[in-house]
Design a protein around this nucleic acid. Structure first.
Lengths: 314, 314
DNA sequence: CAGGTTCATAGTCACAGCCTATCATCTTCA
DNA sequence: TGAAGATGATAGGCTGTGACTATGAACCTG
């Protein structure tokens, strides 16, 4: 490890990054809460130390040089790491306290959160979770940008290279209007029964759409043109007789109560998704999040059991 | 990006890492070239800022706490990154390394780049050039906006107030279908021969169109309605007997090989364009780019000679 | 118990880094 | 065309951080 004095400071890196972001010394100085001359001076020192011009500036505008681009990219990385370190320090007093920002996809949030928040409040009374609901890809981008600490989504989606902790499997069931021939049978549903049946699916961008679609096209079902933007809408339309659909079992308890639906489980191989908590690799929250996953898993499996019971009643 | 002041410094991280490594304040202070009290004071500040005790110390020994282990692991990572940044700065002191974004017009790129990239790789092995192909006016706007570092184009176009380095002249030649009366003569072509001849030209927006058009209208030639979008298309159409055209000599070697063309040079005054590298005034890359121009010029004149040889064979 | 460790504390000082005020340019708009 | 309003650079002065030396307190070792 190099123990020699570093020729630059974290503060200087922040200044450089701020200027690169706003292409303005004044604006950057304002955001960094220093005067513009101070910022100018620090950047001058930094350029001197590096022996490289980072910014091309005249009296009307600022541009980042080729060298500047490379260096500032790296500076951003370092600053993110320092933020992580701060975060780590803050948490190391008490890992599961403070505020955690967690993303969650819509087809999970409505059904899991009500029960989960209660369990979390009980397990970690000093922890506040800020839930952010959006589609998988948006959440993953926010996660990467450091705007989220973790995200709760389906493992089957394209989630890239992230750390993960599995909460549990969520099998899909067949939902049909009451009185529909497919809903009448008592045996588990076979994929082959879906051949040429009209199914309704979620709109583009919802990962549950992709997962259900994969199964349906394998079964040679026929997708109707209309696409719902939430599972609730989907359930309403099915109840209205527009067609049949797949629902994650997680949603059944709520949706079958709101709308008149017949629910049948599928025979092996059961289509399913795997609910998972994901976070950045090398996140300082790693161990805390693993602990959190255990708590979520416990709450989820309790919910599953109750759902199982509810299903038997129907 | 968090722009708030960081509660710690890189120096403090070094101190902490050194202590963790040697489990001794004195030894660590010595290696960091500071007095032991200075190091003690900084670590005390750091622990205060973090709100966590990093070291368990009494007068006979030093131990790293559980929190300290985590934090110092992360601190090591950050210090490695800062070393990388320093290294990066050191390398970028050599302006002709890293990535340069250079624009180039289509009537140059296809013919010059294959040879040029090889020459550049050889001359500047640590330089990566990202070539961006577009029309002159688009390139100049990108250059002005800082999205490009330089652009390779024809001096004869309207290029505004930019810094420039001339690569070399690119004379135009007369290209006719094989068997065309204008192609039969062995003497250099006169502008007057083009009177009332049907010529094909590039589409609007290509600067080569403007340059060729200036010459042709001076010669009272007659432009056919059809306009090609690339020199290759143009050559194909001429070979097909649709008319005659002007080609930059740079393109002859490639195009005359693909299509059956007769090529004649022009008599004085030879119509031509001047291939030029341009960049922003006051760009910090100025001296590097002048050096680059010299390299490009060398590669271009070698290409010219070979093209001269090829032309004699035809 | 003296001498040699260890890290912590006290007191002093220099300079890095901040501030305000001002300059030199360039753009904008009346 | 000229005044007002940007922007970044420069000048000069102040202050607080982080360095130093000297010393203190606790602990081992011969």
């Amino acid at each position: 490890m190099n123990l020699g004095a570093h020729p630059f400071t974290l503060r200087q890196l922040q200044y450089a990054v701020a200027v690169a972001e706003w292409l303005s010394f004044r604006k950057a100085a304002e955001l960094c809460h220093v005067s513009q001359p101070s910022l100018s001076a620090q950047l001058a020192h930094m350029e001197q130390a590096f022996g490289v011009r980072l910014f091309e500036r005249d009296q009307r505008r600022v541009l980042v040089t080729a060298a500047g681009r490379e260096l500032i990219k790296h500076a951003r990385l370092i600053l993110r790491e320092t933020d992580d370190l701060e975060e780590l320090a803050h948490r190391s007093r008490d890992p599961l306290s403070g505020t955690l920002r967690i993303g969650v996809i819509p087809t999970i949030s409505s059904y899991l959160l009500p029960r989960l928040t209660a369990a979390l409040r009980k397990a970690y009374p000093r922890l506040t979770v800020l839930w952010v609901e959006d589609k998988t890809q948006v959440l993953l981008r926010s996660l990467e940008a450091g705007m989220l600490d973790a995200a709760l989504l389906a493992l089957e989606a394209d989630i890239g290279d992230v750390e993960r902790g599995i909460v549990g499997p969520d099998p899909f069931v067949l939902a049909t209007p009451v009185g529909h021939p497919l809903g009448a049978k008592t045996s588990p549903a076979m994929a082959s029964e879906l051949k040429d049946v009209s199914v309704l699916l979620l709109d583009d961008g919802h990962c549950f759409r992709e997962q259900a679609l994969a199964f349906c096209s394998g079964a040679k079902a026929h997708e109707l043109e209309f696409r719902a933007t939430s599972l609730s809408t989907l359930a309403q339309m099915v109840a209205g007789g527009a067609g049949v659909t797949l629902l994650p079992e997680l949603a059944v308890a709520v949706e079958a109560k709101r709308a008149e639906l017949s629910i049948r489980p599928f025979a092996q191989p059961v289509p399913k998704r795997t609910i998972t908590l994901v976070w950045r690799k090398r996140s300082p929250l790693d161990s805390a999040l693993r602990q959190l996953v255990a708590t979520i898993r416990a709450a989820y499996s309790r919910t599953s059991n109750q759902r199982g019971a509810a299903a038997r009643v129907i």
